[in-house]
């Protein structure tokens, strides 16, 4: 099964994962993922027809509460770890171009 993990697939998954892997990381990742996927493929042996998915491991069900206003972090606390902030906002680099103006 490991031939399924080709270079194109590794690039696709790296893109979905938002990871800019170097060329050597791509090579290592393909080899390692191939080994791991080859192993997890053993689940195919198991007959799971009609078996439900597990939702909560200890069998808990929904707990409802009233939708009420509660205390939360103040803006200055929420911003204490921001890479950059300004006033009460997270600051990020400009990401939209200026439309050629």
């Amino acid at each position: 099964m490991s031939e399924l993990i080709d270079e194109k697939l590794v690039r696709h998954v790296a893109h979905l994962s938002r990871l800019t892997l170097s060329e050597s990381e791509m090579v290592d990742m393909r080899r390692e993922l191939s080994a791991i996927v080859g192993y997890i493929d053993k689940l195919r042996e198991v007959d799971t027809d009609g078996v439900p998915d597990t939702a909560h491991a200890a069998g808990a069900t929904n707990v409802f509460r009233d939708d009420e206003i509660r205390e939360s972090l103040a803006p200055d606390q929420a911003l204490t770890n921001a890479p950059q902030s300004q006033d009460n906002f997270f600051r990020v680099p400009k990401v939209l171009d200026d439309g050629g103006a």
């Binding site: 590794v10 790296a14 994962s17 990871l19 990742m29 791991i36």
Partner: peptide, 9 residues
């Protein structure tokens, strides 16, 4: 990175 990749896959 390896686990994020496997999980995404």
């Amino acid at each position: 990175k390896r686990r994020i990749m496997l999980g995404t896959y």
